[in-house]
Design a protein around this nucleic acid. Structure first.
Lengths: 187, 187
DNA sequence: GTCTATAGGAAGATAGAC
DNA sequence: GTCTATCTTCCTATAGAC
């Protein structure tokens, strides 16, 4: 029982970086080991199921972060909707590295990834839609309208990240966030 | 010089299917060979540079198709903008398999793919934006507005495909196409 | 132009020492 | 808990027959 060379939180952050930029099939165990300074065998010790286990842990890690810094804030009905949205969007911006990053959902949603982690990805999408719908209702929209606006916001975030990546410019993503804030503002 | 077992057009279609669903790193030469009924060695005969050559050929193939069935139609200033848009969107829907498919731009935009094919992907995005801007102007928008609307339309398409894939429902994509048509309609 | 066979290397995964 | 060493499988790529 030696002390761990790297804390789990930091470890998962490093692993997530690799998975986001290389995708599920593209990220080799060597890549993952190098990124965190451990050997492959050490990764197998922490994640006995290998790469699949690593991805599941990373997805859960991301889910927890988002839950704390985005979803719960969006759903915190006690506070002012506009302030909550602003704060949640600021954290969203940080989560996606100001638009430089690839969404882990998208990175894992290709090839074998979608088959293995389909349920987790579906769950993540659902949480986004749910919390964005809640804040829409809190801002005064009818439930149907709020649901529609939530979907548009999510599509906007995901699409702008795709275009941002392909054009090597974060502008589309930053514009998308602004637009989302405005959409909820003028209810 | 035996006659080719499979025509280049059909071959590229089959290869593109694999690349879209598995991504660049995820698609092995075995996968690609199986999908078209050829052996790996035969693929190397047709594409001496291996997988990179295959992807470049597929991207060019997709580009040609889009140019003929989407971009040129959008830019054909002689005809009615609304008819052109409707036709182009119908073809877009077909290109993305009614929303079931992954965009080849997105599939190649991960990991090593973005490094190798970055220029091609950037070019593809540019053509989308250019032709969508043209039809916006033709429909009566000011150039600045048209550019903005074009970006929103592209983001909408890409984002809705991501969400559609993750939720296993084509609805987001089909809604996006409808929305785009409406946006250009009410100028 | 297509095929079988195979080289050479990198991948995921495990065994066992410390 | 981490490491080195190793196994096996799969990968890209090539050689050469038909």
């Amino acid at each position: 029982m030696r002390p761990p060379k790297i804390e789990t939180e930091v470890l998962l952050d490093r692993l997530m970086d690799v998975l986001k930029s290389k995708g599920y099939e593209g990220a080799s165990l060597n890549d993952l080991a190098n990124a965190c300074g451990l050997q492959k065998a050490s990764l197998y010790h922490r994640f006995p199921g290998g790469k699949k286990d690593i991805v599941l842990a990373v997805l859960e890690h991301a889910d927890k972060w988002l839950d704390k810094h985005v979803f719960q804030i969006l759903k915190d009905s006690a506070k002012d909707p506009h302030d909550r949205l602003k704060k949640a969007l600021r954290n969203t911006k940080a989560f996606y590295d100001e638009g430089e990053a690839v969404c882990i959902i998208r990175a894992m949603g290709l090839g074998t990834g979608i088959e293995i982690f389909g349920e987790e990805l579906k769950g993540a999408i659902h949480k986004w839609l749910e919390s964005l719908t809640t804040i829409g209702v809190d801002a005064g929209m009818k439930p149907g309208k709020a649901k529609q606006v939530a979907m548009k916001a999510l599509v906007n975030i995901q699409g702008s990240l795709v275009v941002a990546k392909a054009t090597e410019s974060t502008t589309p993503f930053l514009s998308a966030l602004k637009e989302i804030e405005e959409t909820y503002g003028k209810v």
